[in-house]
């Protein structure tokens, strides 16, 4: 008997054992910034369509090295191809960054709660991303653009350390040209060659929210940044139930068993990573967590 976990989107027949990785082959690897790359993967065995929802993650396994949880950054409307945008921070992510097209890696998933796209329908959608936090929000943008009639204004606020670190810089320019879409980019540090915004991403929130009662905000980035973002969103009239955050902790099993990612009463892998703010507000304010 197999445990039903994570998203209801995944047909149980596809991957019956959530602890058993499927072999995927690497279609391509592309460098996004100096330390961030994107893997495009495809399952080696032909089978039913693998679907995911924006905000979910997979466990990627570098054979003989280890496993790590990585958000899915690709297009949710495309079946059987998943993209993962990864930052080199350790042994596993460093090893995954050295694969080449045609190599194989292990994949478990998709896991976790998605961004609530159903709650976003008919409303203004405000995305606030910091650094690599842009990766799990990219599928949201693709979903909104693919179903434009379902949503009102889409605003993307993206913050990076410096101009060289802007993730999906070309796409941000392309998205901005779409009707009903605005994107603003800011960097924390720049010299005089940069003519864009300088300052933390939370400073862009002011004067961005047009209709606070009819806006939903999805936020992903460093936790400190998300706390300030929540403060700014509330100052601009958004309620706690209109703000969703994607959290990150050390995930191991991805099915809520091992406890590595426990966050108060929640398991980030099973109950998250996407949470409505009022559900985790108390735990976010506990210093020990």
């Amino acid at each position: 008997m197999f445990m039903k976990i994570g998203s209801d989107l995944r047909p149980s027949s596809i991957q019956p054992d959530p602890m058993c990785p499927d072999v995927h082959h690497v279609m391509s690897i592309s460098q996004e910034t100096s330390d961030i790359y994107t893997l495009k993967l495809q399952p080696t065995e032909r089978r039913e369509a693998v679907r995911f929802a924006p905000g979910q993650f997979n466990m990627l396994y570098a054979f003989g090295v280890g496993e790590c949880a990585i958000s899915i950054s690709g297009d949710p409307t495309v079946n059987n191809v998943t993209e993962h945008t990864i930052r080199r921070v350790g042994l596993v992510t460093g090893t995954l960054g050295s694969v080449r097209a045609g190599d194989s890696i292990g994949v478990r998933g998709p896991f976790g709660t998605p961004w609530p796209m159903d709650q976003a329908r008919g409303r203004d959608v405000l995305l606030i991303a910091g650094g690599i936090g842009m990766a799990p929000l990219r599928p949201v943008i693709m979903d909104v653009l693919a179903n434009r009639e379902n949503y009102k204004e889409l605003t993307i606020l993206s913050g990076s350390r410096d101009p060289e670190g802007i993730l999906f810089a070309d796409e941000l320019l392309t998205w901005k040209k779409q009707p009903g879409v605005d994107s603003k980019v800011t960097v924390d540090h720049a010299d005089s060659r940069w003519n864009g915004n300088v300052g933390v991403v939370t400073t862009l929130v002011n004067r961005t929210v047009k209709d606070p009662k009819d806006t939903i905000a999805f936020v992903c980035g460093p936790e400190i940044m998300m706390r300030y973002a929540v403060t700014e969103l509330q100052k601009n009239g958004l309620g706690k139930d209109q703000i969703y955050l994607s959290l990150e902790r050390n995930m191991k099993c991805a099915i809520g068993l091992c406890g590595h990612c426990q966050f108060g009463s929640e398991f980030i892998c099973r109950d998250g990573p996407v949470f409505r703010y009022d559900r985790i507000e108390f735990w976010l304010n506990q210093r020990e967590l």
């Binding site: 650094g131 540090h189 300052g199 933390v200 400073t203 980035g221 400190i224 940044m225």
Partner: peptide, 12 residues
Amino acid sequence: ATRLQLMDVYEN
């Protein structure tokens, strides 16, 4: 805002 900027939250 400057304090948050100084934290360098995107540092690898």
